[in-house]
Design a protein around this nucleic acid. Structure first.
Length: 704
RNA sequence: GGCGCGGUAGCUCAGCUGGUUAGAGCGCAGCACUCAUAAUGCUGAGGUCGAGGGUUCGAGUCCCUCUCUCGCUACCA
């Protein structure tokens, strides 16, 4: 494999139904940004795109909740997210959006082309449609009369009276459970991507790195977590996946296609094409000459950065689409990160357990690099990691302030104190310490820090790479302590000058490396040194700054974080979580589950509820949630399967008296026949509780 | 239940194709130093490498069984 001529770097499109939290940023955006900054420092041709993913059902639902249009939702979050990236100095060439006209055209064209070339499988079925709610009805949204037993309340998939399996079309007098109206029958067509047909080349590509008989990439360079998950999917066997939906918010299925009306592209098809439309926009803006070279030229290296939830889309589905389309290159690598937890718990939007980026950048605009540093040093590269504010404090104080910032400050202060900020030197003395200076640029294993940095970054090991920046600063501190210029100033002027001169060169190298990780800090360092930025190859250059050059007044790069800061942040988290819980409670109270359609007494009377006692309980094999109960019903013993294994231990079930729906049609689950259903009470958290009579009632008696 | 990542010092993590006394940073203890945001440097204490078997002259590193975290997936009337 030869060196690529250019790079196409993508970062997963954030979903525009909420703001960004630190987990998103640590997972996909900071790593990709570091990688891109590094490539650019080395003078590479890089195109780096992202954008907001603005379609899909979740956005329409959110819009309904907030009482505004989907467009308003995505406009709002697109703005917030874009601003967060800018404040964090994540430098996309473009932050596009999938609601843009160009994207709709691009995705639509893409779809049509694939369609015309027979790359999809089409399935047309007759489905019931609710005119009032403007949507197709899933099986369970339809009730009607069972053709076999004349039960009037059979569901679209099954009649619960006679137990027969049904399809909605068999029902007599069907009704929509949404509006209560009679639904109309409409034929609907959906398109599927036959992933099963792609299985073979995908396996060869992923496992061996071979594409069309040629070496495409070295499989060993893919991260274990990514490889593992992808292979797992391949082993299971790939299945066709629907790529269209009946929705009203998204990219239309092209009108040229029969049956396209009311159909939208499924978001996961639409979203990755967003990378391409973003690149097109970039070309229209005149920022790049031609978008095609970045997507269709074999000399381009395509890399997708993302979180683990997106692995399958980017390493199986999107590559299948690109391959089916033809002409497009496939990703060389898909470096996915795992998840970041927060203070011992999973980050959760619904519980508001998160550090929100837009809030952080607003509150601490002078601590951007601190966040970038901590999120990189603790990135979930191989396994889930954890962010705590205490760790944030420790890392800032003992690493950024005490090691990196302190060294630079020492040099600035000494140079100003002794030489009024002017770099002086003594050739002979400089020669005598050059060996020591070169040592500073070596790792403890005597590897060159510069080449190690290159190796690690190219392997996507950013936390280790960042640690090398600290290694350099530690070495530098040691060098300075060993040379003791504050002592030699009294005895050996030449030596003192040489040491400070050399130290200033180290500071410059620190600045160069910082450009990839800590852009604001790099700027401050260069400003302090009174110089323009420098190129990557000047790392370790001991004569970058010249004799007689004057540096600026010392200025602190970082400030210490105190206990109060940490306490305030933790408190804020707890308070918001609590507030959110209250809010959720209120919502629950205000919006109880809507009542189901009214039934007649006759309907109710059909249900035969009886009391019984659980006399035996065991776990159902090969099913995590199922328990198999033996229930003494008084007149007989029943075998009943319930999905409650997560709620109760076997011991606490035995001996409990329970209410049983005794005339429910039997159903076989995991080869065990379940003869009835046990009733449980469910609380707001979804936890189940036994509903037992307050005093002993004989088994087999009814419930009235 | 199936599959996958992970389970290594108090904390966060490295340990490639098996090879001498298992590493780093932070934290902790002691010493040195004073140019520096009480910062820095040196030294040290701290580990049955999740548990149990096996292969081997030799295993954190390979095989088997089990277990825990997280994720994907199935079942959940």
């Amino acid at each position: 494999m030869n060196t690529p001529k250019r790079y196409m770097i993508t970062a997963a499109l954030p979903y525009a139904n909420g703001p960004l939290h630190i987990g998103h940023v640590a997972g996909a955006y900071i790593p990709s940004d570091i990688y891109v900054k590094y490539l650019r420092l080395r003078g590479k041709d890089v195109c780096y795109v992202c954008g907001s993913d603005e379609h899909g059902a979740a956005i329409t639902i959110r819009a309904k909740q907030e009482g505004i249009s989907p467009q308003e939702i995505v406009d709002k979050y697109h703005g917030i997210i874009k601003n967060s990236f800018e404040k964090l100095n994540i430098d996309f060439d473009i932050f596009h959006r999938t609601s843009a006209k160009l994207h709709h055209e691009t995705a639509s064209e893409f779809f049509l082309d694939l369609y015309n070339n027979g790359k999809f499988v089409e399935k047309t079925t007759e489905q019931y449609y609710d005119e009032e709610f403007h949507q197709f009805l899933a099986d369970r949204y339809i009730t009607g009369e069972c053709p076999k037993c004349e039960n009037e309340n059979a569901y679209g998939d099954q009649c619960e009276k006679c137990g027969s399996a049904l399809s909605p079309l068999e029902l007599k007098n069907p009704k929509s459970t949404l509006s209560g109206n009679t639904p109309s029958l409409k034929s609907t067509t959906h398109w599927f991507l036959p992933l099963d047909k792609h299985q073979e080349w995908l396996a060869d590509w992923i496992e061996n790195g071979m594409l069309d008989g040629e070496m495409h990439h070295e499989p060993k360079t893919w991260k274990k977590n990514v490889m593992g998950q992808v292979k797992s999917w391949l082993q299971d066997g790939l299945r066709p996946r629907a790529i269209t939906r009946d929705l009203d918010w998204g990219v239309d299925v092209p009108q040229e296609i029969k049956g396209a009306e009311g159909k939208k592209l499924y978001v996961w098809l639409d979203a990755p094409i967003g990378y391409i439309s973003a690149t097109k926009q970039l070309a229209l803006d005149g920022k790049i000459a031609d978008w095609k070279t970045y997507w269709q030229d074999n000399d381009t290296e395509l890399i997708h950065f993302l979180g683990k939830d997106n692995i399958v889309f980017h390493s199986i589905i999107f590559p299948s689409i690109l391959k089916a389309k033809g002409e497009y290159i496939l990703p060389k690598n898909v470096p996915a990160n795992e998840f970041m937890n927060l203070e011992g718990d999973k980050i959760s939007t619904s519980k508001d357990w998160a550090v929100w980026v837009h809030e952080y950048v607003e509150e601490f605009p002078d601590k951007i690099d601190e966040l970038r540093y901590v999120l990189t040093a603790n990135a979930p590269e191989t396994k889930d990691s954890e962010f705590t504010w205490e760790d944030f404090q420790t890392r800032v104080n003992s690493e950024l302030v005490a090691t990196l910032g302190n060294f630079i400050n020492r040099i600035a202060v000494l140079t100003h104190k002794y030489y009024d900020g002017v770099l002086e030197n003594d050739i002979a003395a400089y020669e005598s310490i050059s060996e020591d200076l070169n040592q500073v640029f070596l790792t403890p294993n005597s590897e060159a820090i510069k080449s190690e940095l290159e190796r690690l970054i190219e392997q996507f090991k950013f936390r280790e790479a960042l640690d090398l920046l600290m290694t350099l600063a530690r070495n530098a501190n040691k060098f300075l302590t060993d040379k003791e210029p504050w002592k030699t100033i009294k005895t050996d002027e030449a030596q003192t000058k040489a040491v400070l001169f050399g130290s200033a060169q180290i500071v410059a190298s620190l600045g160069i490396i910082a450009q990839a990780f800590l852009p604001n800090t790099a700027k401050k360092i260069f400003n302090l040194l009174n110089m323009e930025s420098a190129s990557w190859d000047d790392i370790g250059n001991l004569n970058l700054l010249k004799t007689g050059h004057k540096i600026n007044e010392p200025e602190l790069l970082f400030n210490k974080i105190d206990k109060e800061f940490v306490a305030a942040q933790v408190e804020k988290l707890e308070a918001k979580k609590k507030a959110k819980m209250e809010e959720n409670k209120v919502v629950e109270e205000k919006k109880p589950e809507p009542l189901k359609a009214e039934i007649q007494f006759d309907d109710f009377a059909k249900i035969d509820l009886r009391l019984g006692t659980i006399i035996a309980a065991e776990k159902v094999k090969k099913a995590d949630r199922l328990l198999h109960f033996t229930v003494d019903m008084g007149f007989e013993t029943r075998s009943i399967v319930s999905g409650v294994a997560e709620h109760f231990t076997l011991e606490e079930c035995i001996g409990k008296q329970v209410q049983v729906v005794a005339n429910l049609a039997p159903r076989v689950m995991k080869k065990i026949e379940s003869q009835g259903m046990i009733l449980f009470a469910e609380d707001a958290q979804g936890k189940l509780h036994f509903v037992s009579p307050s005093s002993e009632v004989g088994n087999g008696n009814g419930v009235a």
